[in-house]
Design a protein around this nucleic acid. Structure first.
Lengths: 239, 239
DNA sequence: CGGCGTCTTTGATCCCGGTCAAGCCAGGCT
DNA sequence: AGCCTGGCTTGACCGGGATCAAAGACGCCG
């Protein structure tokens, strides 16, 4: 990979930062300051970004690829907390933590991420309260997310969780017609995200298929009738 | 309850704030500013502080009693996220959230809490980055906590979770001898905290009892041999 | 004291879903 | 072509734990 001239690299970096949810709308000067604190990291599929408990170098912004944040128990089973995609930031919470990173992070595919280094950034926060508020917002979003998962996993069965997940994939734009969902990973990963294993996922998909709710073709899922799926969810929650 | 003179109420309030983890060591002047933003609330056992999704008035500090933060599914089953006790702050995340409170909060016993009002406090944060950093730390702690629960619930069985919980109750001071744990709530609540139901908890306690690990006497649990319990945990995690 | 509601325990039953094992398909490599 | 590897599906099995039901245990109050 050719090394870009320094100035060019800066501009490219700033462009990425600007697209990141957390920094959107920030004045150019601040972005420049932040850019000076960031380090570009390339990861091959399967590389670990950090492990649970490791000392905190900073937080990350995904530029390309996908980062799987998860916990493992001693038996080796993984519970996916979330998969982060380009534009997402992760591990902000670790900035203020004395406990190291709270989970493991691994590249689910070849990826490129920006590391925003802790030391400099905390200094910046100290002078720049507006930024701290954004960080708070971002963290509160993650917290909400994790809490949502928590009751998903404890209060609902796999069928319900899958239904829920499917509906989450086709938000906003709702032409009421069939709806194709492209899986970006293997079904094993989706299973882990749903807190189950691939066999059970496979069976549940099959069940939906024979009920005419779904068509499965490799990594393309087609929700044939979103409305009926939504009814199903209501029914499950309602009893 | 007699109304204290205003000045006195202020000092009492400030004393409480100072004890709160988040504000410990803050200069007196800041505490005064914050005190002006807070409202005292008394709750009877069973009263709700807020419900999931409600607009955010601010965050809370527990002064007396116990606040149970939990989620419920439509079937009415509750998953306890955490029980907050005097000195704890809760719902900080909601300050920066546009999604309302992320869970329900109910007084598990007669309680008194301070509401720190959102509007004024966010202004204060904007001028006072140091405070924002503390808030970040507090939130990151909660996040860590919730993530910990998440894999507890998905990756371990009830026996392991109970063992873990018991050991968490007797930290630091470890005179190696037997260890009494006083339950502050009913066993049903403890069960919910462990992500199970009272019947299963009862059985698991019985199992420990007949193994000579535990003595159960009403709401007093005596861990007869913490070291052996710790071994048990290692063994469970180790396979 | 007796009655009543809540909490707790114990037993019986059932089912969801995890595990093991086998077979199948597709893609990549030699 | 063959082979191998990794993902996916399906079947058989079984165990943890939820649910239902009933019987103590422990208040609390009149």
């Amino acid at each position: 990979m050719p090394q870009l001239p320094c100035a060019l690299r800066q501009t490219a970096l700033i462009a990425t930062l600007r697209q990141c949810r957390m920094f959107v709308g920030l004045p150019a000067e601040d972005l420049r300051t932040i850019a000076e604190l960031t380090v570009l990291k390339a990861l091959a599929k399967g590389d670990y970004l950090f492990h649970e408990g490791e000392p905190v170098a900073g937080f990350y912004i995904v530029q390309r690829g996908a980062i799987n944040v998860h916990r493992v128990n001693a038996a080796g089973k993984e519970q996916v907390i979330r998969i982060f995609r380009p534009g997402d930031s992760l591990a902000e919470a670790a900035l203020a933590s004395h406990q190291g990173y709270p989970a493991d992070a691994r590249a689910e595919a070849a990826s490129q991420v920006l590391l925003v280094q802790k030391t400099g950034f905390v200094e910046l926060l100290r002078r720049h309260a507006e930024l701290a508020l954004r960080l708070l917002a971002s963290m509160s979003f993650h917290l909400h997310d994790v809490v949502g998962q928590l009751d998903d996993l404890t209060l609902k069965d796999v069928e319900t969780r899958l239904t829920h997940w499917l509906l989450k994939q086709c938000p906003e734009t709702r032409p009421a017609g069939p709806m194709v969902i492209k899986l970006h990973h293997t079904k094993r990963v989706l299973a882990a995200e749903l807190g189950t294993v691939s066999e059970t996922l496979s069976r549940t998909l099959a069940k939906f298929k024979e009920q005419g709710l779904l068509k499965v073709d490799g990594s393309n899922l087609t929700v044939l009738d979103p409305a009926r799926l939504r009814q199903l969810l209501q029914r499950h929650l309602g009893e």
